[in-house]
Every structure is written in structure tokens, then in C-alpha cells.
């Protein structure tokens, strides 16, 4: 189990990581999700041992890895890191890249060879072991980075926005690929990303970060359906935030029901200001009587003209109360 306690890191006065607490269970995939500058990459660098915290501590099991007083250097942490830039070494072949960590551990040659081959087969690069990175596509380089990190069978695998340099199709494929590698190896992963879909596909649990703090930790469906804060509600998926009876309410656009006005007073009234047909859905922008703007997604068969008066029904079960 990885335990982060009251971890804090500042750069020349500005706070990057602000006293966060987090626990990651063995064999779990934890995503650190947030916009750029939220502190997720700094957290990862602290975990990897490249940075020294100002306060707080990081433990794996009972072993204290980082505190303000001392930091175990990266090479003694038994954690592998996948870099956003892949950091595949251009002067080494695929096999030499993967063998590096095993050579550092002074394993016998024969064993290195079989383990390199096995790891490359696992990431489906078995045929390319003698190529140089420059001869590989971006996706293949990503697989080399994964194989190199997994070959040493680390206790923890850290991934720093590993898919952000890939094109959209490949990214979708690699999400499932990384999840598959996890399910096969059972390795504990901490996965940094700003892409909520990526986090939802890969992770068992998601820690949503903002301004150096962890706003909410939970399984993907909890984060989406039960957002605890205004930031989580608006960062994960689209939402409408309303002030009702002195409370802040979040309701997802597809959960609002639209109808022509009937004589009913318990719903919100509004006027359609914009409308877009998106094939599977229709998107409406609606201005309420008191000037608030709502976004509503309906099925393609629900048709209202721009300018039309409508009523919005907010099912009680879909409304979430939010703390600011």
C-alpha cells in the first residue's frame, strides 16, 4: 500500500502540492486527474523521488521513501516511471532499452535475454527487438517504454500522461492496452492524466486534483454521479450548476427532461437560445427566467425551435447538492 500523508511542495513561494493525503491499495490503478497546473505531475515526481517534499511523507508499506528530511533516490525505490516523452533511448535498440534495468540489477545474461523477449511479447513488440527507436512509430515507442518499465517487475508503475502524444485512435487503443497489462501483471499503478475518459477507462479509482489539493477520491461512477465539489462536478463531464432554495445543485444536461409548457409550477421555465443537432443527441442552450444559462441534452426526437418557451423537469434523483 502506498500512503501519502500531508504532502506539500512549493516552488519559490508558489504552492504546487498543498498537504494532500492519498492511499493507493496494492494492485490498484489510481488516476490523478486534473487540469494542467493542478499539481498532479509534481505529485508523481515526488513519488518517483525526483523532488524532495517540503513537508509530509510518502511510504510504501512500512518503508519511508520521502519526507522533508530525507529522500530515497529514484534508483532505490523500485518504482518505474513512464514519461510523457516516452524517454526511449535513441542510441539503444528496443531489446537494449528493455534490458537496461535488468543489467543494472546484474542478472545473468541468459535470464536477461528470456525476460526481455517475454516482456516484448507481452507488449506485442516481439518481432521488433533489434530495431532502433527512430525506426518505430509513436505507438510502438510507447510500448517500448512500457516494456522497459515492466521488465524490472517494479513494485509500482508510475505513468505521466503516457498517451498525450498519440493520435486519437491510437490513444483509445492504448488505454485498453494499459488496462490489459495491469490485469495481467496485477501491478500497482499511479496514472497521471488530464483526460477524464482516459482516467475512467484505465483506473479503478480516480483522485481529482485542483490547485494542489485532492478534491475527491472515488470510483469513476462515484466521481461522475456523486461529485462532491463544484470543481469536480464541472471538470468531470458537463453539468449545470443551479442555485435552488439557497443550495447549489448540479444536474447533468442529459438528465433534464424537456417539454412544452404545461400548467405546472414545480419546474424551471426557460427559452431556447441555441440548438445543435449532433446525430445521437440534440444539444440545447436555455435561458431561464432569472437569466441563468442551462445546457440540456435530449434524444434526437425531442425538437424545439430556437425562441420557444420550454419547461425543464429536474428529477429529484438526478440533482446533487454541491459544496463550493
Amino acid at each position: 500500500m502506498i500512503t501519502i500523508k500531508q504532502l506539500r511542495k512549493t516552488y519559490e513561494g508558489s504552492v504546487a502540492v498543498d498537504r494532500i493525503d492519498l492511499e493507493v491499495k496494492d494492485g490498484e490503478v489510481m488516476a490523478l486527474l486534473g487540469p494542467s497546473g493542478c499539481g498532479k505531475t509534481t505529485t508523481l515526481q515526488l513519488l518517483a523521488g525526483f523532488l524532495k517534499p517540503d513537508a509530509g511523507e510518502i511510504r510504501v508499506g512500512d518503508r519511508l521513501l520521502s519526507s522533508a528530511r530525507s529522500v530515497v533516490p529514484p534508483e532505490r525505490r523500485n518504482m518505474s516511471l513512464i514519461f510523457q516523452s516516452y524517454a526511449v533511448w535513441p542510441h539503444k535498440t528496443v531489446a537494449e532499452n528493455v534490458a537496461y534495468g535488468l543489467e543494472v540489477r546484474k542478472l545473468p545474461r541468459a535470464e536477461i535475454k528470456t525476460r526481455v523477449q517475454r516482456t516484448l511479447d507481452r507488449v506485442k513488440l516481439g518481432q521488433l527487438s533489434h530495431r532502433y527507436p527512430a525506426e518505430l512509430s509513436g505507438g510502438q515507442q510507447q510500448r517500448v517504454a512500457l516494456a522497459r518499465a515492466l521488465a524490472v517487475e517494479p513494485q509500482v508503475l508510475l505513468l505521466d500522461e503516457p498517451l498525450s502524444n498519440l493520435d486519437a485512435n491510437l490513444r483509445e487503443e492504448m488505454r485498453f492496452e494499459i488496462r490489459r497489462l495491469h490485469d495481467e501483471t496485477g501491478i500497482t499503478m499511479i496514472y497521471v492524466t488530464h483526460d477524464q475518459t482516459e482516467a475512467m477507462v484505465v483506473a479503478d479509482r480516480i483522485a481529482v486534483m485542483n490547485l494542489g489539493r485532492v478534491e475527491q477520491v472515488g470510483e469513476p461512477h462515484e466521481i461522475y454521479e456523486l461529485p462532491a465539489t463544484r470543481f469536480v462536478a464541472s471538470f468531470i463531464g458537463r453539468t449545470n450548476l443551479l442555485q435552488l432554495n439557497g443550495k447549489t445543485i448540479s444536474i447533468r444536461p442529459h438528465q433534464v427532461l424537456l417539454s412544452k409548457p404545461i400548467e405546472a409550477t414545480h419546474c424551471l421555465k426557460g427559452r431556447i437560445t441555441r440548438h445543435a443537432y449532433l446525430g445521437e443527441t440534440r444539444d440545447y442552450v436555455i435561458e431561464t427566467a432569472d437569466g441563468a444559462i442551462m445546457r440540456v441534452t435530449t434524444g434526437p426526437e425531442v425538437i424545439h425551435e430556437v425562441g420557444a418557451e420550454v419547461e425543464m423537469h429536474l428529477p429529484l434523483g438526478a440533482c446533487r447538492e454541491i459544496t463550493e
Binding site: 518517483a48 523521488g49 525526483f50 533516490p73 529514484p74 534508483e75 532505490r76 525505490r77 518504482m79 518505474s80 516511471l81 514519461f83 510523457q84 516523452s85 524517454a87 533511448w89 537496461y100 534495468g101 543494472v104 540489477r105 517504454a145 522497459r148 518499465a149 524490472v152 508510475l158
Partner: peptide, 13 residues
């Protein structure tokens, strides 16, 4: 990153 990758795989600075 290139140097840091080696660090995480167990090589000293």
C-alpha cells in the same frame, strides 16, 4: 527524462 528514466530503472546518477 532520458537520464531520469535510467534512474527509475535503478541506475545511479
Amino acid at each position: 527524462d532520458l537520464e531520469n528514466a535510467a534512474r527509475t530503472l535503478g541506475a545511479g546518477p
